[in-house]
């Protein structure tokens, strides 16, 4: 990390810094975390920042909010390289690694129009099991249809 970047990362007092997000996916990360901006937290987004590891990366800082493990884990769907730093009083007190959860509930949409989760009257949340991590492949718990990485990215970055 160069000096300029260190500054960006460590400057918040309390909260969460999500670093090493693949370039261009910061907004999708926020969306996935359920952060819309209306919660009132100060949110800083840096996109296409220079990074030794990735060439370019994105960075997200959310002040006065410590992300929960399950929120963090969802990140693996679109940002498997991400690192999460929990900051208290300007210090990194915890580094969390993202770990893919067993199930993804309610974030993604099944591609099968006949699936029960696609029927608006029934109010059934989508549920996907992880079939493979790399490349990412999920399986709808209801209809069994696969959801491939490409489609996951498309849905989360739209």
């Amino acid at each position: 990390m160069d000096e300029q970047e260190t500054l960006r990362v460590s400057k918040i007092k309390n909260g969460t810094v999500i670093d090493h997000i693949p370039a261009g996916r910061a907004l999708a990360v926020l969306r996935l975390m359920g952060i819309t901006g209306s919660e009132g937290h100060v949110v800083t987004v840096a996109m296409n920042v220079r990074s030794g590891k990735l060439g370019k990366k994105d960075l997200v800082k959310v002040e006065n909010l410590e992300l929960k493990a399950e929120q963090v884990n969802k990140l693996t769907l679109i940002a498997p390289t991400a690192t999460i730093n929990i900051i208290r009083d300007y210090e990194v007190v915890e580094k969390r690694n993202v770990k893919l959860p067993d199930k993804i509930v309610g974030i993604l949409r099944c591609t099968n129009p006949g699936c029960i989760t696609r029927q608006p009257m029934e109010h059934v949340s989508s549920r996907f099991l992880i079939v493979s991590k790399s490349p990412l492949r999920l399986e709808c718990e209801y209809c069994g249809r696969y959801l491939e990485e490409e489609e996951v990215l498309k849905q989360l970055t739209q």
């Binding site: 006949g114 699936c115 029960i116 029934e122 718990e141 069994g144 249809r145």
Partner: peptide, 26 residues
């Protein structure tokens, strides 16, 4: 039901046992 996955959903909703009488493509 014509909706795929209805039987699983029914089992989640109902306390009594549910038998799938044919559902989806599998």
């Amino acid at each position: 039901s014509p909706y795929e996955g209805s039987a699983k959903h029914a089992a989640d909703v109902c306390e009594h046992p549910v038998i799938n009488g044919g559902d989806g493509t599998q």
